[in-house]
Design a protein around this nucleic acid. Structure first.
Lengths: 340, 340
DNA sequence: CTGAAAGCGCTTACAG
DNA sequence: CTGAAAGCGCTTACAG
């Protein structure tokens, strides 16, 4: 029932060969056909409301004008703005995105990855971030263009977009130290994800600059980037007598706040808490969260731009973009009242 | 560079005709070929790591195993869980989703709609909700299966999934009235959207049951479902001396809270505020929002199920699902202290 | 500048 | 049960 009118119908109506219709309707080849013929074809196409069938074009050209996005979980508030940015960028060139959630689960990732590849997407944007990534490896081997977001790129065939986590973490630690905090705890991200390691290391480096370090009992690694895990990890770290908790992202920070509230520990008076990303509503929660704002949407548009550069712009060199972040002080941090 | 091994390679390796390969590899036709041949083909396919090219299959069969999702704006926290639900459901049948944002903008919607149709998606799920919807009309005319979410269905060719807004609004008004509120204001959704009208009417009906009505100066219609608009509308409605504001969704309610805070009006002591949807973090904001929880994710899986019923299950009757909602009392509502 | 032909990788009536 | 052929709707060398 779908597009019934084909290039042959247009050919018939305009009295030319289907090949000429194709050439006249395609911007890139239009100059090859005489202006009057081209106009006749265009008029006929409009009259018949002809819409080209991209799947047929794909079979011939090998290109779908569609890219695949692999994402851990769209309901994590970090991702929607990134995805939106990607799509805004793609839409400018009539490209389209096929998106799939992996839940950071290897089996599910394999399944959805196959589903996207079977549909011959022209390139991939990975918002997932396993440190040892079979999907990424498969993409590189197959020579399929790929840009990774929020993680370090590996190898010469991969482009990347990320925020300047080191700078953000450094600003955050400076702030905490300036408030008198010396015993700082970390609620870090799940092991095995690239972003977790990046931020954890950045924290250690930033502390070291002030002659500080993480006490062994002041570090806990979440199993997922969830509030529940933030809560659990906060409990683990509470024994360390830390006066501030640096969480690897906002979700974990929110979980930390839950744990503190339940125990009647006041934030920020008793313990300061910081997040990372500045996700939606972090300015509205109680207390408003001190965090590092990463430019989500821009990360998406940059990722889209880089992929399009490669796909339609013929830019073959991989690009690596590190976007500036903004440290934002709100009310979850305050002067240290060293706990007893 | 993409899938290089084709059905011909598998045919060559297994010593049969390509047609036989096709039949052996396709579950639905496998019974037609002899078990030993089938096994030989399957082994050969595995050995070559053959992956069928779905775009080629599409050209023959006219089906893409892909559906289009039209959404106003993915960064609106209402939508990610719905989209996630849709994709979870689709993935069970190896279907995939092509998603596009419209910003409720007619021109943009037309552009992305064409882009999705050109890719021959098998069906559509509309999360957009113009009351007079050319996209929906085009879909119906073309006989393309469509499911609408969060709006009433029009016509016999459309399936729908929505929350029971009437019940939710009724519970909410009962609650407000039981707290002694009599002068209730409405910050309603933008005109022209189906959901706005549904909720506004539901509010009027619920008030009427208590012998109450909206004062003319106690109603404001937002231009978008944004916090900024909630803020503006709250200001408009403040002159009415209402003791409670019923916002059409959580975003608008958050905007109302902003307006009250700026003016030093305490919520809930001076004015109660309610939202709708119970979007992410509404339990964490200050004050935690009394609202109606709609089952976002389930709405998505139901929409996906209905579409799949039609696409692979052969169910041609339209389905209309109204999902139960849950009224959740938090701290943005309290006993009325009639203002002077 | 235009036409005729071939072919992208599948699936599916049609024979045998 | 299997093969040979046709064709889905395009694009693009190849002639003329």
């Amino acid at each position: 029932v779908q597009s019934r009118v084909t290039i042959r119908d247009v050919a018939k109506l305009s009295g030319v060969h289907p090949a000429t219709v194709s050439r006249a309707l395609n911007e890139a080849t239009r100059h090859v056909v005489s202006p009057v013929t081209a106009q006749r074809v265009i008029d006929a196409a409009r009259e018949l409301a002809y819409e080209p069938d991209l799947t047929a074009r794909t079979l011939r050209t090998g290109r779908t004008a569609t890219v695949g996005i692999l994402i851990p979980d769209l309901t994590n508030p970090l991702f929607p703005p990134i995805v939106r940015g990607i799509e805004d960028c793609l839409a400018t060139q009539d490209y389209t995105a096929l998106m799939a959630n992996t839940d950071n689960d290897v089996a599910r990732e394999r399944q959805v990855f196959r589903a996207l590849r079977a549909r011959q997407v022209d390139g991939f944007i990975l918002l997932t971030s396993h440190r040892n990534d079979v999907t990424l490896k498969a993409l590189i081997e197959a020579g399929i263009p790929v840009v990774v977001v929020n993680r370090h790129a590996t190898g010469p065939d991969v482009s990347s977009v990320s925020g300047d986590d080191a700078a953000g973490m450094s600003a955050l630690v400076d702030h905490l130290v300036s408030l008198g905090h010396k015993r700082i705890a970390a609620v870090s991200g799940q092991r095995g994800l690239s972003i977790s390691r990046i931020r954890h290391r950045a924290l250690e480096v930033a502390l070291k600059e002030h002659g500080l370090a993480l006490a062994p009992n002041a570090v806990s690694f979440a199993r997922t980037f969830s509030e529940a895990e933030g809560d659990r990890c906060a409990e683990e770290v509470l024994g360390s007598k830390a006066t501030a908790i640096v969480a690897a992202n906002d979700n974990l920070a929110v979980g930390c706040l839950d744990a503190l509230a339940r125990r009647g520990i006041n934030c920020p008076d008793d313990i300061s808490v910081t997040g990372f990303n500045d996700v939606l509503f972090m300015d509205k929660i109680n207390p408003p969260l001190t965090t590092v704002r990463t430019p989500h949407r821009l990360m998406g548009t940059e990722a889209g731009r880089i992929l399009l550069d490669r796909l339609v712009g013929g830019v073959f060199e991989p690009q690596h973009v590190v976007l500036p972040v903004e440290f934002v002080v709100r009310s979850s941090t305050a002067i240290s009242r060293a706990r007893g």
